[in-house]
Design a protein around this nucleic acid. Structure first.
Lengths: 138, 138
DNA sequence: TGCGTAAATTCGCCTAAGCGTATATATGTC
DNA sequence: GACATATATACGCTTAGGCGAATTTACGCA
């Protein structure tokens, strides 16, 4: 299915902005607008990078109303282990840890009837993020 | 000392040719000319990439006579673990495994009084590589 | 059904970086 | 000390890909 060579994955991850995005998503699933806010980047930029990450099977997207929730795609093969190693490595970088925290904060703002900016009643759990490089994922 | 951000390391590794070089060196320490032969690349190309890898602390160089032996720099921090994960991931790629094997073969040719092409009497151990993408590393 | 907002896509520009070629430096040999 | 070889470096070209700006598409709401 995947079998995409490691080179491919690395090429995808080895981009500062993309790495920041992955870093944030490692803290918690986020909407595009959240990433936009946390990383202070123009919306098209975020969107483009997310597209690339999606193609490389690094993230998974879940449309919710007019929003799209992105999350890290947890796999078990070599691909997944490599990704996990990258995420873990970022956990030792000060700047990355900071952004990860801000991402988690932003994520907590949802799930309490407060979607990105509008208000939606659908029961969407947003938690499940993992700080400090742990695992646990169904 | 290093504390070079993960982004830096990824940027360095996320280059097809460089990845191939690292892959070969994961099998065994090699001379520049060996890499040149195994990867079938012009010498300046190999040299340039090795320089980049050296700056990123991915490899270590050891001059021996007029040759230079390159080897993977085994570290223990996050940096080292990430590198190890990358190497391990490559062990699952067919093409990479093939080249790794050829690199090991080439490496075995030395250490028996048969340096790259000239003949040197200095006792230079060349073994120490690790194939089959396994672990086990002191 | 028209408006407002979220996200994706397109276009053109621009810079980073890899490559080939040529050359420089170091080291060993006769 | 001249020469041969191993490796490193310099230079110019070329291309991949990231970015800003504008536009399109999708969806919800009044």
């Amino acid at each position: 299915m995947s079998a995409l060579p490691p080179a491919e994955l690395l090429l995808t991850l080895a981009e500062p902005t993309r790495l920041r995005i992955v870093n944030c998503l490692a803290a918690a699933p986020l909407f595009v607008s959240d990433l936009q806010g946390v990383l202070d980047l123009p919306q098209p930029t975020v969107s483009r990078h997310l597209t690339v990450l999606k193609k490389a099977r690094v993230v998974r997207d879940t449309p919710i109303a007019q929003f799209v929730l992105y999350r890290i795609r947890q796999e078990s093969g070599p691909h997944g282990r490599l990704l996990q190693a990258v995420i873990e490595a970022m956990g030792h970088d000060e700047a990355m840890r900071l952004e990860r925290h801000r991402a988690l904060d932003r994520s907590r703002a949802h799930g309490r009837g407060r979607l990105p900016s509008t208000r939606v009643g659908t029961g969407s759990q947003t938690g499940g993020g993992d700080l400090s490089g742990g695992e646990a994922n169904s």
